[in-house]
């Protein structure tokens, strides 16, 4: 299949970006990133600079891919990362617009690569359970209701890709933050420092320059791990509870 790619090129964080159009020949069995590999090989053969895009595991779990395909983070397929998106979902002759994730808190580094270390800062502000190695009691000493463990797991499947922020018209990180708060807060182990965690993580999230949630639910729709906005509601009430009843 023949495709026309309109790709965002930007030399570095400071310079101005622009769209450049390329033609590439792909097959329907390729993954989207393999199609970009073909383009890059072509560019290298022409002694031009290849397009920089982040990727690593290519099996949908590391969360490195960070591009917006025709206006949608990770492209048109639901619950699918860019690396798992295959070209059979595109049509011969189609024009595909590829841009980096856009949000103030995710500055563009080069071409399609963005800086998502603001997510790490949010986790560092409290996204953990304070337990040193060796302090743990026996694993079975804390029974956890199966459904509750399942719920915590659903929130914990977040891969930290940032598609939620990218999809949000406000560049809000509520889905990411709430997923971590839910994962840890739902479990009895994490309950002890729950109030402190919630307060600190929300404050850090605000500090990083993410926008405010206006409940468009675009995050949920684009999340490759289908994390629910139920978590956002939980964060809202946990935060209020933490502020209103905390010391």
């Amino acid at each position: 299949m023949n495709l026309q790619l309109k790709i965002w090129r930007q030399k570095n964080a400071e310079s101005k970006g622009y769209f450049e159009t390329y033609k590439v020949e792909a097959t329907e069995h390729m993954s989207f990133l393999e199609m970009l590999d073909v383009l890059n090989e072509q560019l290298i053969q022409e002694k031009k600079e290849p397009v920089v895009f982040e990727h690593d595991c290519r099996e949908g779990i590391c969360g490195a891919c960070s591009m917006v395909i025709n206006g949608q983070p990770h492209g048109p397929m639901a619950a699918t990362t860019t690396c798992q998106l295959h070209m059979r979902h595109f049509k011969n002759g189609q024009t595909i617009t590829i841009e980096p994730f856009r949000a103030k808190a995710f500055p563009i580094l080069k071409d399609l690569s963005v800086d998502r270390s603001s997510f790490d800062s949010i986790i560092q502000s409290g996204g953990y359970i304070s337990v040193n190695t060796g302090q743990a009691p026996d694993g079975n000493s804390i029974p956890i209701e199966k459904d509750l463990a399942g719920k915590a797991f659903d929130a914990a499947t977040c891969i930290g890709c940032g598609a939620c922020v990218a999809a949000c018209p406000n560049g809000s990180a509520m889905l990411f933050t709430s997923a971590k708060v839910s994962h840890l807060g739902l479990l009895p182990q994490g309950e002890v420092e729950h109030k402190r965690r919630v307060k600190n993580m929300v404050e850090q999230m605000d500090k990083e320059g993410f926008g405010m949630c206006s409940n468009t639910k675009a995050c949920e729709a684009e999340c490759p791990k289908e994390i629910s906005v139920e978590n956002i509601a939980r964060l809202n009430r946990n935060y209020m509870n933490s502020i209103l009843t905390g010391e």
Partner: peptide, 15 residues
């Protein structure tokens, strides 16, 4: 301000 710039292709597919 938090969003910065908008996407070239806009879509209502997700909201």
């Amino acid at each position: 301000h938090a969003k910065g710039s908008k996407y070239a292709v806009s879509t209502n597919a997700n909201s």
